[in-house]
């Protein structure tokens, strides 16, 4: 029974990671990209806890997971704030539109 749970946890980690990576590659909306990052973050939290649960050091794993959650939430918060500002300043959230906008002509990069 307990082994079953570990297997389920590992499956969840792999599944969430895969979905997140797929999202990062295919989604073009900045908000959706942040959402994909959140999904990968959940995979990371689960991975740490599953590992700790297997090795019997659940308390240490939990403290690590707390750090992951903090960092992940901050990424979401700041990413969303930047997205809001992007929408305000450039009127778009589309990665392709934005990257074209920020493309600097190569001459400007040449430096002295």
């Amino acid at each position: 029974m307990i082994i079953d749970m570990y297997a389920a946890g590992i499956a969840a980690v792999f599944g969430l990671l895969g979905i997140g990576l797929y999202g990062l590659m295919t989604l073009r909306n900045l908000i959706k990209v942040i959402l994909s990052l959140q999904i990968i973050g959940k995979a990371a939290v689960l991975a740490v806890v599953v590992a700790g649960s297997i090795s019997g050091e659940i308390a240490i794993a939990q403290s690590m997971a707390a750090s992951v959650i903090v960092a992940d939430t901050l990424v979401a918060v700041i990413g969303l704030a930047l997205a809001v500002q992007m929408q305000r300043c450039h009127g778009s959230l589309d990665l392709r539109t934005l990257s074209m906008k920020f493309h600097t002509p190569p001459e400007a990069e040449n430096g002295g």
């Binding site: 590659m25 295919t26 073009r28 990665l95 990257s99």
Partner: peptide, 13 residues
């Protein structure tokens, strides 16, 4: 190399 996030992620992966 496009400076586009999607392609960058492909590179990372």
């Amino acid at each position: 190399q496009t400076g586009q996030l999607n392609w960058n992620v492909v590179g990372i992966i």
